[in-house]
Design a protein around this nucleic acid. Sequence first.
RNA 1: UGACCCAUGGUGUAACGGUAACACAGCUGGUUUUGGUCCAGCCGUCCCAGGUUCGAAUCCUGGUGGGUCAGCCA
Length: 566
Amino acid sequence: MTDKNITENQEEKKSLNFIEQIVEEDLKSGKHKEIITRFPPEPNGYLHIGHAKSIILNFGLSETFHGKTNLRFDDTNPVKEDVEYVDSILEDVQWLGYKWHGDVHYASDYFEQLYEWAVKLIKDGYAYVDDQSIEEISASRGTPTQAGKESPFRNRSAEENIDLFERMRKGEFKDGEKVLRAKIDMSSPNMHMRDPIMYRIKHSEHHRTADKWCIYPMYDFTHGQSDYIEGITHSICTLEFENHRPLYDWFLDHIYEEGRTRPRQIEFARLNLSYTVMSKRKLAELVEKKLVSGWDDPRMPTISGLRRRGYTPEALQLFAEKVGVAKRENIIDVGLLEYSIKEHLNRTAQRVMTVLDPLKVTITNYPKDKEEFLSAINNPEDESMGEREIPFSRTLYIEKEDFREEANRKFFRLKLGGEVRLRYAYFIKCNEVVKDENGNIIELLCTYDPLSKGGKSPDGRKVKGTLHWVSAKHALNVEVKLYDRLFSDESPDGHKEKDFTEFINPDSLTVTENCKAEPFLKTAKVGNRFQFERKGYFCVDKDSSKDKIIFNRTVPLRDSWAKKNF
RNA sequence: UGACCCAUGGUGUAACGGUAACACAGCUGGUUUUGGUCCAGCCGUCCCAGGUUCGAAUCCUGGUGGGUCAGCCA
């Protein structure tokens, strides 16, 4: 290989994001022989696409650098957590295509070790039991621009503190009566360093440890140590934890033993998507107020919602890759998410013809009892998917919007006296429009050109439009749910005066029954994805039954015609 | 009137001191039995002001703008 080639190859190499650069340097310098990352959700809600970004980042890192990724539940607050959430999180991570290293970990597995470390800190003079009320502690913390005041209990002896802490554990005190605090600096410019609380009393049932404990460690006294216990090398979290890093390091300083792996916290910007909300609180509110059907409503940005909508793990991975990783606040255009799924499905989805809004068409010169089968390509992007047969007969359905009695020459579809191609079938010409007493078009009388079978034009005659269609006699009745963005505002929670629910899009869901599908769809199973030609990508919803298939529209096809005529 | 972080086209991300790249969106045009796909082209001078340097989007200083922090949440 020449020098030039080497240079070119290096240039072609995809540039690394700042976290990948750190990892690469740590490996190159020998700081770590192998990296271990972790995905550490609190089981207090369903995962959303922002979590997907984090999952893909953490697992992706260990894939590209041949390391490991742990899955750990940060379950230090029993009143907010539930097994329902751990189950859904487990499902979502696996669905995304990742396998965590070893067993699932829980911060609650480390409660005993954490307790011992707390005792050590007390003995070393770095922690104390505070009897102040929640209000007193809050008041004495100061403000970002004003130093706090030291607690009157700050200088208790180690012996007294140990005794009190042990009695806290035994359950001798009520919730809120006492806390364990780190003794750092009440005048620190960093609020998190003003004697942060390490333990609080909560007499409540934990979903895993039941009533074994009545004192629970805070996030700050748990996370770094859990990373340390697991040998995590790179502890990646979102930007709002930036101010916690000095505390993360402070606790580690006081328990660290020479020779062991010391984790490093690195922060990146969380994902924000336009036209939706991402906070767990707001998503929960949508569910509670029944503004959506549940956490997995196809309009929700949750992983379960996107899955039900028809998104694929590959699409979310592509999306995460396109979005990138940096420290800048961002709002990603949902269009990029839609691009990602279209990109994947265009290559992989079975094509099929379905008429969403049927208009009856009778081919007057086609024999009454005749039917024939025509060959259609399953996926023009993938020849290996082969072809299928579609029934054709005298009575058909086409899309209502594909016909106009009169239209200018920009309208490529069927008009009175005009000719179009029925995809894979024949050229047809519309000769007469049948209307009901109110003047609504209820049927078109057309003639076909028998020589144009397969949609070909033996005489070289051109038509501008090609329509999808379904034979009425063979049609399968299906229900289709069309989705639009849940909010009509680009940043629904970005308005100080208005609540985000005020921006709910009233037309985010359209249910259309009596859609006509080609018989191929008879055997479609829940979760199957298709492209309905000219209409978009659809997948079979879990609410489907034997006699009624329900399709969710994942995303429409790009439609430059509709756009121009808007 | 504090600390920390951030600042590149409409949206994201890259360029690691050598003269702005990639993707999405948008707009033109071409191909096409999906007004899909695909292909070609167009669309920024890097928040501002100083400084260092032969040379700065990249380094320094000061502004300005935005974000985070005053839970016994994570």
